[in-house]
Amino acid sequence: MNNKLEITSKIEQGLLPHALLLLGSHLAGQEELGNWLTGLLLCEQAETINEPCDQCKSCSLVKAQTHPDLVMIDNSEKTIGVELMRSAGAFLQKTAQLAKNKVVVVFSAENMTESAANALLKTLEEPTLNSYLILVCNDIEMLLPTIISRCSVVKISPPTGEELARLVNDQRLINEFSNLNELAELTDANCQEQRAEIIEQLLVFLQQFNNGNELVNLLASNIHGMRWLTNSFNQLVRIQSGWQDSLVSHEMNQLAGCYSNEQLWQCLNLLSQATKQIKLLTQANKSFTIEALLVDIEHVLIPS
């Protein structure tokens, strides 16, 4: 709510920046804020009610994603290529057809390739009148510092404490080490199912090492995959270090005592290195890096 009040105040004062970066952890609310702001900038009644009216022609077109003055880029877990960003930049150079403003929204902006990010920089450096660029981001570390510096950053604060607990349907998912990075799997049923599938395959891999291809595909295709993999090893270290009562319901309890802490720490080091590499790679190279990672983990856990 505070974010909306701040934005509407800037609009009233004519101070809304040309480019905004809406930043938060996955499912923290930045996507919803991006959709709301898009509607606000294009709504015919927004100046009088400070909200999208949801009734005018513009609001109807925004809902249908057919507004002539709106471009929405949402490649989800796929990379965002340079041609998409060049087209978005060209779009913002045009004159608005229906609304007063022109808007480009880029969801999962962290998925831009380096070439796409460089193309975006040109748009940021040459803003046009009544044009707005909204970047919705889940991981600021994957954005170029030059892009961040040219945007007005709006940080989305996710729910915490009792507010977060009320959103969690299955309280067994919460333990002493739960944190806001786990918001997706704590509050979203689809994420919970995806995590369960990855953990199931991980347990098979760590015991039999015969399902590497299946696990690679799951990890590479899920934006949370590497985080869930790293968290599993972290929890196993904690279980073996005396925190088993706090993690009694965690799946990694099945492997307690199978490997030494030294082996697990080596795996965590490999995971850290691979995660840093993946943030800079294309989707194809992501799969290759994860495949190499699993081979290295197997070598650590089954020494020759």
Results as ranks from 00 to 15, higher is better:
1 M>N: 12
1 M>T: 14
8 T>Q: 11
11 I>S: 14
11 I>K: 10
13 Q>M: 14
18 H>K: 13
20 L>E: 07
21 L>N: 03
22 L>K: 04
29 G>V: 05
34 G>H: 10
37 L>I: 10
40 L>P: 02
42 L>C: 02
45 Q>L: 12
48 T>H: 08
55 Q>G: 04
57 K>I: 15
58 S>L: 09
58 S>T: 07
59 C>K: 05
60 S>Q: 15
63 K>P: 06
63 K>H: 15
65 Q>K: 13
66 T>M: 11
73 I>W: 13
88 A>I: 07
89 G>D: 00
93 Q>G: 09
94 K>Y: 04
96 A>Y: 00
108 S>D: 03
110 E>D: 09
110 E>H: 14
113 T>W: 02
116 A>C: 12
117 A>N: 09
119 A>S: 15
120 L>Q: 01
122 K>R: 07
134 I>N: 03
136 V>E: 00
138 N>H: 08
142 M>W: 05
146 T>N: 01
146 T>Q: 04
150 R>L: 03
150 R>S: 00
150 R>Y: 00
151 C>N: 00
155 K>M: 02
156 I>R: 02
163 E>W: 04
163 E>R: 09
165 A>P: 06
169 N>R: 13
171 Q>D: 06
172 R>Y: 10
175 N>S: 05
176 E>M: 02
185 E>K: 13
187 T>A: 06
189 A>L: 06
190 N>L: 09
205 F>Y: 11
206 L>C: 03
208 Q>S: 10
212 G>V: 12
218 L>M: 12
219 L>Y: 03
220 A>Y: 06
229 L>K: 00
230 T>C: 08
232 S>H: 05
233 F>V: 01
236 L>Q: 09
237 V>F: 14
238 R>A: 11
246 S>N: 11
248 V>C: 13
250 H>I: 11
255 L>P: 03
261 N>V: 11
264 L>H: 09
266 Q>H: 03
266 Q>Y: 00
273 Q>P: 01
282 T>K: 07
285 N>T: 07
287 S>M: 13
289 T>K: 07
291 E>L: 08
296 D>L: 07
